[in-house]
Design a protein around this nucleic acid. Structure first.
Lengths: 146, 146
DNA sequence: ATATATCGTTAGCTAAGCTAATGGAAGAGA
DNA sequence: TCTCTTCCATTAGCTTAGCTAACGATATAT
């Protein structure tokens, strides 16, 4: 008897993993228009959506060490996309937030990424759209647990 | 009237994008045990599953330039994970394939990634598993078109 | 036979990954 | 109040990865 079963957790996990890799690899192609490379775009994204945020938390969120994030943030600041504010409460830390320019650049980059995917989703049968919608809640639950 | 609709393509696209990012970021944590960094692991993965493959095609698949892939492949070869074979047909090209050691390292790394995800999927309700299973086919179709 | 195109490599640049060490600041304990 | 420990981000210094341009060897077209 085959172990290939529709709801075998290992098979689902492997296929989800593969699909996510290919999806992001494709979507990343649209980033060339942003003028930022992947690590910078990713950091800016977290600052825009989760800011203000400390450098340590940002490094945690991006799974890199603080020295690495220091350089990335310095580059974003030099481009006028991010600003640093010292904390009045704890002067060891800095609070990072996006400038208006930074928000604009990030949202434009995100729009480019999302747009081609959205245009493909738009032509799917309604049942497929519903399936995708249901999947998102499941995936969000999985990611939170991991 | 709200534009937030369950099957609005933009919303689905944005949420899928975000979920994929978070999923892979989480899974990438398991890679530390492999002894390889992300670019090398990724290249090895393509060689194991799509090999033998030329350096140019591998660079295309990974969305980097040939000089970048040359260095990554040289490092993998130095570690005994990959071997290069000159082509008898076209002596400009080389064929890359994984060694037994390379396959072992990659499959072990992949097992680590998949395992934690599979253990979470295993405890989902059967309906959620079916939803995920249905989603994979849809996602594979989307990725192919992009 | 010659010119053009292709494949992968090398050179040289910038950026990103790391650890260790550092300086400044905050907190805990005596 | 002083001292020690811990915390936060930066700097230094290393390796690796990203790029383009140029190159040499090879294949293809004329």
């Amino acid at each position: 008897m085959s172990t290939e079963r529709p709801t075998n957790p290992e098979d689902i996990a492997a296929s989800l993993h593969s699909a996510a890799i290919h999806l992001l690899r494709q979507l990343r192609q649209a980033d060339a228009g942003s003028g930022l490379n992947s690590p910078r775009l990713s950091a800016l994204s977290v600052i825009v959506f989760a800011g203000p945020i400390t450098l340590g938390h940002l490094a945690d969120a991006e799974r890199v060490r603080p020295p690495t994030m220091t350089r990335i943030v310095n580059a974003l600041e030099a481009k006028g996309l991010v600003k640093k504010c010292a904390s009045a409460i704890d002067r060891r830390t800095i609070h990072l937030s996006a400038t208006m320019k930074g928000k604009r650049v990030l949202l434009e980059a995100r729009r480019r990424r999302i747009q081609s995917l959205a245009s493909q989703i738009a032509i799917l049968p309604p049942q497929d759209k519903k399936t995708l919608h249901a999947t998102i809640a499941i995936l969000n639950g999985l990611v939170r647990v991991l």
